[in-house]
Amino acid sequence: CEICHEVFKSKNVRVLKCGHKYHKGCFKQWLKGQSACPACQ
């Protein structure tokens, strides 16, 4: 996960249209302050 830098250990992964992958919880937190993929912006 590019947000928390932890390895994906479960199926709790969100894959965006751009192809980047994040933990669902991390991405949900990210969206509270941002509106785009962290890696693409």
Rank of each mutant, 00 (worst) to 15 (best):
K17P: 11
L31I: 11
L16Q: 12
C40V: 02
V15D: 08
H23P: 01
K32H: 11
C18K: 01
A39Y: 04
N12F: 10
C18D: 02
R14A: 06
H23C: 11
E2T: 15
P38D: 04
Q29P: 09
V15W: 07
A36M: 08
V7G: 13
A36W: 07
H20Q: 00
C37H: 02
F27Y: 03
S35Q: 12
A39I: 04
Y22R: 01
Y22P: 04
C37D: 03
F8C: 08
L31Y: 07
V15M: 09
G25P: 15
S35I: 08
V7H: 15
C4E: 02
I3G: 05
W30E: 13
C18G: 01
K28W: 08
C37A: 03
K11S: 15
K17F: 05
G25S: 12
K9S: 06
S10C: 07
Y22H: 05
Y22N: 05
V7N: 07
E2M: 05
Q41L: 07
K21R: 13
H5A: 13
Q34V: 08
K9I: 02
C1Y: 01
Q34N: 15
K17A: 14
G33L: 10
V7T: 10
L31E: 11
C37W: 01
V15C: 07
Q34D: 14
K28E: 15
K21P: 08
L16R: 08
G25A: 09
G19Q: 04
L16K: 06
E6D: 11
S10K: 11
H5D: 05
G25D: 14
K17L: 06
L31S: 12
S35Y: 06
C26F: 01
K9D: 04
K28L: 06
K24L: 10
K11E: 13
K24Q: 15
K24I: 10
Q29A: 12
A39H: 04
C40W: 02
N12V: 06
L31M: 11
K9M: 03
H5C: 14
F8K: 06
K32Q: 13
S10R: 05
C4S: 00
L16G: 15
K21A: 11
K28R: 12
R14L: 05
Q29N: 13
K32A: 11
C26S: 01
Q41F: 04
E2C: 05
G19M: 04
Y22T: 15
C37Q: 02
A39P: 09
Q29Y: 05
V7A: 11
V15P: 10
S35G: 14
C37T: 03
L16C: 10
C40L: 02
K9F: 07
E2G: 09
H5W: 04
K32V: 09
H20S: 01
F8D: 05
W30G: 11
H5Q: 14
N12R: 14
L31F: 09
Y22W: 08
R14G: 05
K9Q: 02
F8E: 06
L16H: 03
E6R: 15
Q34M: 10
P38Y: 08
C1G: 01
G25W: 03
A39G: 13
K17G: 13
Q34P: 11
W30C: 10
H5Y: 15
V13R: 13
Y22K: 02
A36R: 08
P38V: 10
W30Q: 10
C26K: 00
K11F: 12
F8M: 14
Q29M: 05
G25V: 05
C4K: 00
F27A: 13
K11C: 06
K24H: 08
S35L: 08
Q41T: 11
Y22M: 15
C37R: 02
Q29E: 12
K17S: 11
A36F: 04
C40R: 02
C4T: 01
Q34F: 04
H20A: 02
A39Q: 12
C40T: 02
Y22F: 13
A36L: 10
K32I: 09
A39F: 06
N12L: 06
N12P: 09
F27V: 11
C26V: 01
V7I: 09
E2S: 10
Q29I: 06
C40Q: 02
C4A: 00
G33C: 08
I3W: 03
Q34L: 07
G19R: 05
Q34G: 14
K32C: 09
A39R: 08
C18H: 01
H23V: 02
A36E: 14
N12K: 15
C4G: 01
K32M: 12
C1E: 03
C1N: 03
F8I: 13
C26G: 00
C40I: 01
N12Y: 04
Q41R: 15
W30D: 11
C40D: 02
G33F: 07
L31D: 09
V7W: 05
F8L: 07
K21V: 11
E6F: 02
C37E: 03
F8Y: 05
C26E: 03
E6A: 15
Y22I: 14
L16S: 13
C40A: 03
K28P: 06
C40E: 02
I3T: 04
C26D: 03
L31Q: 13
L31T: 12
Y22D: 03
V15L: 11
K24W: 07
S10D: 15
A39S: 12
C26A: 00
F27N: 05
I3E: 03
K32P: 12
K17V: 12
K9T: 03
S10T: 06
C1M: 01
W30P: 10
H20P: 00
R14I: 04
F8Q: 03
F8T: 07
N12C: 05
I3C: 02
V15Y: 03
L16D: 12
H23R: 01
A39L: 06
K24T: 14
K11M: 05
